[in-house]
Design a binder for these strands. Structure first.
Lengths: 223, 223
DNA sequence: AAATCCCTTACGGTTTTCCGTAAGGGATAA
DNA sequence: TTATCCCTTACGGAAAACCGTAAGGGATTT
């Protein structure tokens, strides 16, 4: 049975790194490299590519706690996006504690990750399954987030909507949002349109008012 | 050098469990038991106490993903609180990815945990330090949350405040909150008082309106 | 070209929020 | 007792949100 030969593991939590590595060992993968920063991950992959010994697979966490080292890629998202643009052939598995569907959609649809595995109770088992599936050219999602990819909702909520929600959560009133949009050439920019859009969002998320709307979209990780 | 003899590790993420165990081994602690559910943790501690071979220390995660097994203690909070009430002598270290100060305050001040360690980049090193400190009768907090315990803020925000914030986040308007409080004999219950309290909270959290207020308190984990 | 549809915008009225002021009442101090 | 302080409550006006309606304009259809 063939399998990935060379794998890079990126996670700032050392103990999780160890768990992943033990899984890889269990699958008889010998060439394993570990890093704790996204920038290191990128460099490792670049370097390996240059010396013609590229990595086959990257397993990366999403959230990396910031510390004294300033980073070009502060999060798994940015890392995945950059890598998939430059090396579309590289397989990437996201391995995160986050299980909100919006996050999963973003990682899989926008960043083009090949799999999304939740660090849950059976995380390592699922990770093993993900590695097999991805090796076979398939996509893998942990069961608890498998229903994230029904593009319906993904396209219903636009960047425009998210911008409004962000500004609302920052305390701006509708008139100020209108000014902001006018200034930045975002359309529609009228108070009336923004008002209607907020109303639509309230319907969609079953919120009774703006306050609850922001609470809800914060809960599901939309902003 | 003496040290804890018998330790229980509770964490639903198997890989993290392994990391913690490797630290304990490194400290020459031999009797280590692992569980993946809070209820199991409680039972193990009860049982050990009955046969007069009690655990000295519990290291537990806070968030346990719910699955098919219904649990009496669904989270680390409830587990810690229950254990500390029944066995005040048992040392408990919380080990969590969450780093918001409100959560830390709750765990340390309300639940009486002996230490709070963040699963960060240096989580295992900090955990080792925490074990030593707690063994020496001291409290330990990871550096990134060390400033959580300035009781000032902890007492400024009351259960009453939190109830208002919760209801706001659920879309209730001030009049409805007033009805609710009247019905439940919570005072003050007048719209005017609730209005003023919200205003105070907006000042305190530097929010421009209720929407931003809810966004902020959600961010810091207050609700 | 005319009709239709949809999106944007404007407007008016009601509800809710926001903010200052003030009255009433209980606790404490002079 | 009187004075003072603080908390609760009421009230009124301005700002903002909420909600329905309608006009204007661009794109598509007939």
């Amino acid at each position: 049975m063939s399998m990935f030969k060379k794998v890079l593991v990126s996670d700032d939590l050392e103990c999780i790194n160890e768990g992943v590595v033990s899984v890889l060992h269990g699958m008889n993968i010998e060439h394993i490299t570990q890093v704790a920063y996204c920038d290191d991950a990128f460099l490792q992959i670049e370097k390996a590519m240059l010396v013609k010994e590229p990595f086959d697979l990257l397993i990366t966490d999403l959230s990396f706690v910031a510390d004294h080292r300033s980073q070009k890629y502060p999060s798994g998202e940015t890392l995945i996006r950059a890598l998939k643009e430059k090396y579309p052939g590289l397989k990437i598995i996201a391995y995160s504690v986050e299980d909100n569907l919006q996050k999963v959609r973003n990682i899989v649809l926008q960043c083009n990750a090949d799999a999304y595995v939740c660090k849950g109770r059976y995380g390592l088992k699922q990770l093993a399954q993900a590695i097999e599936d991805v090796y076979g050219g398939k996509q893998y999602l942990s069961p608890q987030v498998a229903n994230a990819i029904q593009k319906k909702m993904a396209i219903e909520i636009s960047d425009y909507d998210i911008e409004i929600l962000k500004l609302l959560s920052q305390g701006f009133i509708q008139k100020e949002i209108s000014f902001n949009f006018t200034k930045n050439n975002i359309q529609p920019a009228s108070v009336s349109s923004i008002e209607k859009k907020i109303s639509k969002l309230c319907d969609h998320f079953k919120a009774r008012n703006t306050t609850q709307l922001v609470a809800i979209v914060k809960d599901i990780g939309l902003i």
